[in-house]
Design a protein around this nucleic acid. Sequence first.
DNA 1: GATGAATGAGGTTTCATTCAT
DNA 2: TATGAATGAAACCTCATTCAT
Lengths: 197, 197, 197, 197
Amino acid sequence: MTLQSLSTKDKILESAIKLFSQKGYLGASTRQIAKEAGVAEITLFRHFSTKEKLLEEVLNKYSFLPHLRTILPEVLNLEYEDALFLIVKNFLNSLFLRKDLIKIMKAEIFTHPDKVAKHLQVFIDELYDTIALYFQEMQTRGILRDFDTRLAGRALLGMVFTYFEVEEYIFQKQNTIEDYEEAIKEFVKIFVKGTVK
Amino acid sequence: MTLQSLSTKDKILESAIKLFSQKGYLGASTRQIAKEAGVAEITLFRHFSTKEKLLEEVLNKYSFLPHLRTILPEVLNLEYEDALFLIVKNFLNSLFLRKDLIKIMKAEIFTHPDKVAKHLQVFIDELYDTIALYFQEMQTRGILRDFDTRLAGRALLGMVFTYFEVEEYIFQKQNTIEDYEEAIKEFVKIFVKGTVK
Amino acid sequence: MTLQSLSTKDKILESAIKLFSQKGYLGASTRQIAKEAGVAEITLFRHFSTKEKLLEEVLNKYSFLPHLRTILPEVLNLEYEDALFLIVKNFLNSLFLRKDLIKIMKAEIFTHPDKVAKHLQVFIDELYDTIALYFQEMQTRGILRDFDTRLAGRALLGMVFTYFEVEEYIFQKQNTIEDYEEAIKEFVKIFVKGTVK
Amino acid sequence: MTLQSLSTKDKILESAIKLFSQKGYLGASTRQIAKEAGVAEITLFRHFSTKEKLLEEVLNKYSFLPHLRTILPEVLNLEYEDALFLIVKNFLNSLFLRKDLIKIMKAEIFTHPDKVAKHLQVFIDELYDTIALYFQEMQTRGILRDFDTRLAGRALLGMVFTYFEVEEYIFQKQNTIEDYEEAIKEFVKIFVKGTVK
DNA sequence: GATGAATGAGGTTTCATTCAT
DNA sequence: TATGAATGAAACCTCATTCAT
């Protein structure tokens, strides 16, 4: 989809997420964003009264929830290891789809805690709740040993997230999602063995 | 170079790390940094020819290596679980001591990949190597099952690091290091069970 | 031109005089004026081709002539002191009714001399002529001593006008017109004694 | 005295009062003021943190007190009419010396009441007190009849001030102070006759 | 007659950096 | 070594005004 086919507001939002993720919030000037969107600078300000508002709307528009919750039911019917693999892959997929947004959030969380952190708190809380729910069910079924399900969820996602972070942002590899397969499998194997009865 | 000048330089570096971590590289002006350090702006430029140089020197000066390598020998004599706990705690301790630097690196890695990422690549590589070495030794001793030791190390540190990130930067808790004990224990337990023979 | 359009135009003029008097000509943006009037900005420009035109029409529409001329005949039958009191009160009344317009004229006379000063010149000339006429008649009747009637008129109105200015605009008192009674009386008394034979 | 020979700060202040009085506060851009002063725009902001501060300092620097108070003693020894003439002339002289400042104050009193009105309140109060004091003394000496001395003072100065305003700002005459002689004399004559016993 | 959407020019203010002392 | 004073360039943002509908 070309920029041409989008509404003016959307063109600006697209340019904004692109430039914010490349140069940071302060590094990306409203002039550049407008130019990239092919509109006059003031047009940007007619749509977003301030640059901060623009950031907010970028965060809202491209916000995402890994739909763990929606895949939970189907996952419950799988083997434990397969289930975990699917969950993790799904999570990783969300990260892949929102690389730019993640960049922005990582970079701006300290300077815009009210906008970024608040946002993430809700999302992450729900994420942890969801995965904990899965572990609880598996404990109830007698498949898993007793442990703190929320902490365990954070452990599993943490392995994956840090791995993603390091690969993408520190080693700056141009990995496809397939390149993560091996690592994920190893992670899941450790986690499975570490949590079953 | 006199002591006097060292002191001035250090004052500037301290102000810089403080302000960079609070407002980001672009958000912290050289004027503010100089003011915070109690010197004239131009004095800052006498010591650091450009603002970028100042960032570089901040990164270098406050850089850190979790001294995993130095504690490895003593750790080898401990029970596996105790050893992991010590390693993890040590790692976490390093993070605690450098919260400000981590903020800066997280925020600026995208805009200054050459300065931040390169830096981290070396440090992280060495970190992973070190922990992998430990696992290899434990495999050799027949205590651990067969697995990719580097990936396993990344898994363990990943759990801890994401937990630290989320607590500190997203939930913005004012945790002491003791508050992490419980989580670490749970992580280590899962990991131990997941990796022993 | 329909009634509907008249109403729109008037709404804009009312908003304009209000905002011009509050924020000055440059301080009141056409956007604000349009918003205050409840119309789109461009509608303002349909009615007044430029902002300057809008100012002009505000000045014209709300322009005023203290109807000294109309009350002169009845005043001629009063005692000198009563006559002056009525004249002055009448003048003051005009000022009260047009506080907003006076604000605008005072503020913009330097930046729009062609619009404001020209306007005032005519009005003030006529005002001075009128009051001079009254004094001439009173001189003819042998009630007043010989003096420059125009200057005397300016003196009388000047006392009142400066008093009004200082009270309203410098001391920003929320005076009603009654609060001026005492001062006016004192002014008239001095003036009467100063001009009678 | 050329701009060259002044300090940078003074050069800016001189340019500011000139342009403010010509174009108004909003009409005179900091860019123009800096250019007129022959400095870079940012230099203006180093000296005056904001444009408002610049206005404030202009008002303060060029502020004036007609030194009525200082001439009172010598005036007390003159004939009543001569005394009034001197007082009035002195007052008018102050106005002449500060035409530009008066323009600014007249134009900006509505948009910057805190800066302009407050300023004038103190100055005017003192002015009225001073002239009232003179009338009181003359009443005590039995030369003047009984009247409200403050109001009378306001009347006298009011005649003169409005005359000055109208001549200068409405009729825009390029009067010298001598051109006011005749009017002042007439005013004083009326006032003398109006207040003596 | 009315408008939603767009703009070129210009507003105030801040930036990192330099010159002369 | 340290600095007060200065700067060109660019930041965010607003202005009066116009175009197409």
